[in-house]
């Protein structure tokens, strides 16, 4: 893995994501949305009914996370990534709407990778299990949709130097495949 260290500010326009390659360490600044299983199901059901989504996804990043509750004085509780493949079947319609980044952990299905290439998007991994550490880079958190879902509600987070690695870039290069091969015996 011979990636570069890069800093990006959201929104993640199609122009900006062209410069992000699998292996790059990226520090994100700006606004990102949270969303995991239940929120994705609602977003897709909303689209199926022909209704408008509660958030505009164009050039946005969704972070697959269900944070722990904040202690008094905290902005957010521990907030590491959840496993991404569970969102695979619910991702293509969001890519079509212009979603340009996803943050999670673990493999993605072929149809998602093809969609990322077609519509232009990158998949970042945050360190799974490092929820206490990651929470430090989240500076604001506000529920913007589906409050009744509790930890699964959609939040708008303001982040600073939020650390991620580009695992699958918009050309389909996949770090999980290439790096594993390197260390296989």
């Amino acid at each position: 893995m011979s990636g570069k260290i890069k800093k990006i500010t959201t929104p993640l326009t199609k122009e900006k994501l062209k410069g992000l390659m699998a292996g790059d360490t990226v520090y994100i600044r700006g606004s990102i949305y949270t969303g995991r299983d239940a929120a994705h199901q609602r977003l897709i059901e909303t689209l199926k009914r022909g209704e408008e989504l509660p958030i505009d996804l164009k050039d946005q990043i969704i972070y697959y996370v269900g944070p722990a509750p904040a202690k008094p004085g905290q902005i957010i509780g521990s907030a590491g990534p959840t496993t991404s493949y569970r969102m695979d079947d619910l991702t293509l319609p969001l890519l079509k709407l212009g979603l340009s980044g996803m943050i999670g952990k673990g493999s993605r299905g072929e149809q998602v990778i093809e969609g990322m290439k077609k519509y232009g998007a990158v998949y970042f991994a945050a360190i799974g299990g490092a929820g206490a550490l990651i929470a430090d880079s989240i500076k604001e958190s506000q529920i913007v949709a589906y409050e009744d879902l509790g930890t699964e509600a959609i939040r708008k987070l303001k982040v600073e130097d939020f650390p991620v690695i580009v695992v699958i870039d918009s050309q389909g290069n996949n770090l999980y495949v290439s790096e594993r091969e390197k260390y296989k015996r």
Binding site: M1, G66, A68, G80, A132, L133
Partner: peptide, 27 residues
């Protein structure tokens, strides 16, 4: 890269212990 990740996981456990917060959001 693996070494760096392990360092971060150790650091994460230290933060959790000191601040008395869960090390992972999936409790």
């Amino acid at each position: 890269v693996a070494k760096k990740i392990i360092d971060n996981l150790i650091k994460n456990s230290e933060i959790a212990r000191e601040k008395r917060v869960p090390m992972c959001q999936d409790t």
